[in-house]
Design a protein around this nucleic acid. Structure first.
Lengths: 143, 143
DNA sequence: TATTGTCCCTACCAGTTTAATATGGTATAT
DNA sequence: ATATACCATATTAAACTGGTAGGGACAATA
């Protein structure tokens, strides 16, 4: 019941693309260095994200990756579903006392829904905006 | 990011004890059969729960297990913390872009809090009561 | 007191997942 | 050309999961 580092890397990768903007491709080498992600691992993640359609790759010397979708339309639940299959599933409760099994199933379903709701309310656009604001501190108007 | 069957078995085990009541010890064999849990696996779980202080074991021919604490005082967050260490942790975000790392940490912390809150609001007493109500359907007063 | 049925404990193991690493392609801008 | 990127597959060491096995310790009862 924990978040894998693959998911974490994926979030960082997509956040990086969102922050850099969608104009020109960003290279994996650069992101790997900035976020301290094993380069070859990051490559796999990039391919996965491409397969899911969240990202577009351009080859060649000046190539790289960029978001294939506006960051406002990418929420974290969507991402985590791509990296981990499903959010907070639990082993099937089949055999055994059916009544207790049903009660527990309901409880877990409620938690799953809560997490899903929470994660789907956060978009890459938000993250990018907050990050940019922190990186370039607000200008001091009062001189 | 899923719930292990160990945790599920643990919930069933404790629920069984709560349902049966705290008067006399209940034997693992009985619970294992009723809930279709591998007996030897259940033994390990019982020992773990004993170590955490949620359960008391009596040896001997008429022995068994019973709750060491009133079921009203046992919430599911407490249990899951014993079986899985922590609820929804994520790999440490150390190296790399500190700003993005911080933002992601916050997001996960919020989800963790939500799940923890949800699970800690459910006690074994509730589960036992609901289960008992379903097992012995309400008497038909209208004859 | 001998037996029996329980809890208790330790060790082991097979399969899967995780987090990478390695190798070698293919495509393209300069 | 060739360097630099993307793309794809194979391998692997370590950890985790979900058990199994074999005993001991202990208490009730016959």
């Amino acid at each position: 019941m924990k978040v894998s580092s693959k998911t974490l890397y994926t979030f960082q990768f997509l956040s990086a693309l969102a922050i850099k903007g969608r104009k020109t491709p960003v290279q994996l080498r650069e992101i790997a260095a900035e976020y301290d992600i094993p380069f070859k691992f990051l490559e796999q993640i990039a391919i996965l994200m491409k397969g899911v359609g969240l990202v577009r790759g351009t080859r060649g010397k000046t190539g790289g990756y960029q978001l294939a979708v506006p960051p406002e339309n990418i929420d974290l639940a969507r991402v985590i579903r791509a990296t981990e299959g499903e959010v907070l599933p639990c082993a099937d409760i089949d055999g055994g006392n059916a009544i207790v099994g049903e009660l527990l199933s309901e409880i877990f379903a409620r938690q799953r829904a809560a997490v899903e709701r929470g994660l789907s309310s956060v978009t890459l656009a938000e993250i990018a905006e907050k990050a940019r604001r922190k990186m370039e501190p607000a200008p001091m108007f009062y001189v």
